[in-house]
Amino acid sequence: MSFLYKIGSLKCVASLVALSTVLAGCVAAGPQPKDYSDFRAENPKSILVLPVLNNSGAVEAPEFFLSTVSQPFAQRGYYVFPANMVKSLLEDEGMSDPALLYSADTRRLAPIFGCDTALYLTIERWESQYVVIATSTNVTFKYELRSCKSGESLWAHTQQLSYSPQASSSGNPLADLIAQAIIAAIEKGAPNYMPLARQANALAAGTAGQGIPAGPYLPDVYQMDLQQFPAGEASE
């Protein structure tokens, strides 16, 4: 029985670790902060979210990704174009293949949309492993903001995430274990990846030193976050 208890406490440790990762991203950047010189110089105000390029085998992945990407980027203080309307219009115009769209010059989007930047989204990996007690899904997403004015890349980020849904604890470890197994089985059948996609997109957009600096719709922090999102090497 103590083994089962251990699993329970392991879970707690795991969530603590997850929590501290979030904190680390929030308070002090873990990895080296990115160079935001180009981003700062361009000072974009709007983001055009493009349809997702899917390099993984998961057919349903782009829909989870696209429906959850607008919000976290907008919450950073930017105007984000209506993603579904943009996607539908591009499809109506015969531009339904993201691969074609992604190889075209970003500057050509400007006369149609009047965008400052376009957000290119690529799913590199989306794999689920079913291991009886928990299904874990490993994803790799790539984000790139390109200027609609110059076509140059202003920010790029790769977000990796391993996700396994957790059953809420009942206080009875055996029951928890069974609940966890049931959840894993449900995940295998009709998985809900909304939390996974949300988490990845929130981390990609909001992590200090890695995400995007605050935009004009956050007037309290706009252009005040030079320390978290530095513009190149500190000038001497």
């Binding site: 829909e63 989870f64 429906s67 959850t68 919000q71 919450q75 579904n84 909304m194």
Partner: peptide, 18 residues
């Protein structure tokens, strides 16, 4: 404390769009 209250109200846009 870190992200503050969300700047914009999206309601249930995400699950409904999905």
């Amino acid at each position: 404390g870190c992200v503050a209250a969300p700047r914009f109200e999206y309601g249930s846009y995400e699950p409904a769009l999905y």
